[in-house]
Amino acid sequence: MTGQISRHPSSPHSSPQPRPQQDPFEVLTITPELHADYIQTLPSASFLQCPSWAQVKAGWESETIGWTDRTGTIVGSALVLYRTIRATGHRFAYLPEGPLIDWSDGDLSRWLDPLVSHLRERRAFAVRIGPAVDLHRWNAPTLKSALRHDEVLDLGDVAPDEVNDNGVAAAEQLRSLGWRSSGRLTRASVQPALIFELPLANRSLDDIWRGFNKQWRHSIRKAEREGVAVSLGDGQDLPAFYTLLKVTQERDGFDLGRSLGYYQRQYDALSAEHPERMALYLARHSGETLAAHTMNIVGDRAWYHLGASASHRRQLCPSHAVQWQMIRDAHRAGCATYDMRGFNTTLDTTDRRSGLLRWKVGTGGRAVELLGEWDYPLNRSLYHAFNLYLASRRLV
C-alpha cells in the first residue's frame, strides 16, 4: 500500500534543548533528586526513566547519571539499570526508554561516547539504550484501510504517513558509531518499538469522542447503561488486579512472568514519587470487579500500561468503560498524548494477534514506530553469550 508521506522534523519524545556544537559533555553520577529535577524541565519522559523505577526492578542495581556541559550545567540525564554476572563481575547496563538527551543533535558522539566510557568504568560488558524517538507514523485511516485489504499482512509492508527526519538521522548516526539495532518492528526489544498513540493536545473531549469508531462509542454507552461503575483503586485492590491479570494471560496466551509483589512494589514506588505517577482503575458491576487497568503520567504524556479483565460478562464492555475514564482523566490532567503501548505488527484478520491493533485503531489514534533499542558491545564474547541466553528465554 502506498500513501503520501509527510515529514516532521522533531519528535515529541526528544529533548527540546539543543546545545552549541562545541560544548564538550561529561557523564557523571548524579543524585536521583537531580535526575528527577531534570525530568521536570522536559515536556515528558518515560516513566521507565523516573528514579522510582529503580525500586521496582528487584535484582538490578541502579545509577542515575547526568551529562554536563563546560559550565557544569546538567543538559541530559538517565536512569541506568545494571545486571551483574556473578561468575565474572561484569554488568549489563540498560537504559529503558532512555537516555534523556538531545536526539536531534547532529553529533550524537558527544553524548554517547562519554556514556560508553562511563559505563566501561562500571565494568559493563554491553550497553542497551532505548531512545523514545519517533521514526514513522501511520494514521488511523491508513491503518483501517490496511486492515481491510487481505493481501496486506504486516504493518512493515505499509508506507507510513509521516517520517521523522531527526529519528532517521539518529538511527544513521547510531549505526555509524557502532551501535546495533534490535531490528525493525521485531520482538527482540524489551520495550515495544511500535506503540499506539491517541493525540489529546488541542482537542476537546467531544473531538476525541467523535474520533472513536461506532464500536467504541456503542461499547462505552452500553457499559454506562448496564451500570458499570469505574473508580480509582489503591494498593489494597492490587490482589484483585493481579487475579484478573492471570485470567487475561491465560485467555490471551501470554505470560509477563511478574508476581503480585512486583506490582505492589511498582505501585508503592511510583505513587510515592508523584501522586499521578501510577493509578489503578477498576470497573465494577453488581459488586464484582470485571476489569482493572493501570495508567502512568509523566509531564504531558499518559500511558495505558497494563489491562486485565474477566473472561465472563464481557458483553458489559468494562474495559471500554475504564479506557474512556482514563482518557478523560489524562485529558483533564493536561496530557498531550495517551500512549496505549505496543501491539503486534500482523494485519492478518485471521490471526488473533491482530485483534489488539483493531481494538486500538477504534480510538482514531495512530501507530508510531520508535527508534527502538540499540546495543553497544564492550566485551563481544560475553555479549554473544548473553544474547544466546535471552534468545533461549524468549523461546521458552
Rank of each mutant, 00 (worst) to 15 (best):
V230I: 11
S231H: 07
S231P: 00
S231A: 12
L232T: 04
L232K: 14
G233N: 09
D234S: 15
G235V: 05
Q236M: 13
D237S: 14
P239W: 00
P239H: 09
A240P: 00
A240T: 12
A240D: 09
A240Y: 03
A240G: 13
Y242C: 11
Y242F: 15
L244P: 06
V247I: 15
V247E: 13
V247A: 11
T248R: 05
T248I: 11
R251I: 06
D252I: 03
G253F: 12
G253K: 13
G253P: 05
G253V: 04
G253A: 09
F254S: 10
D255R: 11
R258P: 01
R258V: 10
L260P: 01
Q264M: 13
R265P: 08
R265D: 12
R265K: 14
Q266R: 13
Y267R: 11
Y267W: 13
Y267C: 06
D268L: 09
A269L: 06
A269P: 11
A269E: 04
A269G: 04
A269Y: 06
L270H: 12
S271R: 12
S271P: 00
P275I: 06
E276C: 08
E276I: 03
R277A: 15
M278F: 10
M278W: 03
A279P: 02
A279W: 05
L280D: 02
L280N: 00
Y281N: 07
Y281M: 04
L282C: 03
A283T: 08
A283C: 01
S286H: 14
G287R: 06
L290C: 02
A291D: 05
A292Q: 01
H293D: 10
H293M: 13
H293A: 08
H293S: 03
H293C: 06
T294Y: 03
T294F: 13
T294R: 04
M295S: 09
M295E: 03
N296P: 05
I297R: 08
I297M: 08
D300A: 09
D300P: 00
R301V: 12
A302Q: 01
A302D: 09
W303R: 02
Y304N: 04
H305V: 12
L306C: 07
G307C: 09
G307W: 01
A308K: 00
A308F: 08
S309C: 06
S309K: 04
A310S: 14
A310W: 00
A310C: 08
A310K: 00
S311I: 01
H312N: 13
R314I: 09
Q315D: 15
L316W: 05
P318T: 11
S319N: 14
A321W: 02
V322P: 02
V322A: 13
V322D: 02
Q323P: 00
W324A: 06
Q325E: 15
M326V: 08
R328K: 15
A330F: 04
A330W: 08
R332T: 15
R332V: 10
A333Y: 12
G334R: 06
A336W: 00
T337E: 02
T337A: 07
Y338W: 11
Y338P: 01
D339W: 03
M340N: 01
M340E: 01
R341G: 02
T346F: 05
T346L: 10
T346D: 13
L347Q: 08
D348H: 09
D348I: 01
